[in-house]
Design a protein around this nucleic acid. Structure first.
Lengths: 156, 156
DNA sequence: TCGAATCGTTGGGCGCACTAACGATCGTGC
DNA sequence: GCACGATCGTTAGTGCGCCCAACGATTCGA
């Protein structure tokens, strides 16, 4: 007799969205944790794989990871031997970050884990429903990214 | 020339979900902030309005707010004169929390703000699309709430 | 009646995102 | 040439939402 009626806000789109995202976050987090990593680790490794070695600032811009968090993220990955930090001979302010072989291996593990997580997340939805959801969310995300300055717009 | 290609993970459902939820959260947060409140304040006031006065523990169960955060939330609302904390004569472990007239007024403001926020959040979607999105998210949320022990299941 | 359960409270932690400030370095306009 | 502004890496600290552990006080149940 403690929780008979659902709370009034539980049907609001903003609630559905943030709560579902909470579940998604937990699933992703647990998946990464099972391979000894967390979100920022994956994003950094994936960015390195996609764009190649780069300075910390550039990696921050491309991955959406804040520069000040980038420091710790790289420290952690470097301690595990997954990335390497080397001074840039062409610009002594910069470090050049690159992925090691172990880093590439770890990235593959994380991608596999992440793919399985998508499956767990969308489990109750049919293929068409998944497609539809993805489209709707993309529309929403694009809209708000444009309104709120996209994750990345270095020039202006 | 900094961000030509979108990152590889940006089309993943989990990413779309958590990012969109981030925007939703910010919109809700800003809306509440414009009335001098935050999420927990609204949830507590709404729970009180829906279920009536109750102990802090019961409010925590109904609102999904952790008991230890409940303390601070009630402190803040009580300082503003929006709720009242009185010892329960029937059980000296308990406090009975109730809403003041000012609290009800504030709740109405927050509900108005929240409704406007839903509009801002869903702006680019048609009525049918909003309906569809809500259904899909509800399906997902129900599924995962069941799997992960619902927000509230005091018995068993 | 006495141990187990509940209540309120304090004090911490986490992930993610962000801000402010700093010394070091670079590069451009004058 | 060189001074000033911009950029780079780094440290330190903020905030929300969520959670855990522990505590004294009180109540309940077998």
């Amino acid at each position: 007799m403690e929780n008979p009626t659902p709370a009034s806000w539980e049907s609001l789109p903003s609630w559905l969205l943030t709560q579902t995202a909470g579940h998604a976050h937990r699933l992703v987090f647990d998946g990464f944790a099972s391979v000894g990593a967390r979100g920022y680790h994956y994003r950094l490794l994936a960015t390195l794989a996609e764009f190649g070695p780069a300075s910390q600032a550039a990696l921050g811009r491309r991955s959406g990871i804040h520069v000040s968090d980038m420091v710790a993220t790289i420290n952690e990955l470097a301690d595990e031997g997954l990335v390497e930090r080397a001074p840039d001979p062409a610009d002594r302010r910069r470090n050049v970050i690159s992925m090691t072989t172990a880093g590439k291996r770890q990235l593959r593990r994380l991608e596999k884990e992440l793919a399985e997580t998508q499956e767990r997340l969308l489990e109750p939805l049919s293929t068409e429903e998944r497609q539809r959801l993805t489209e709707l969310l993309s529309t929403l995300l694009d809209h708000h990214n444009r309104r709120t300055g996209a994750p990345e717009e270095p020039w202006r």
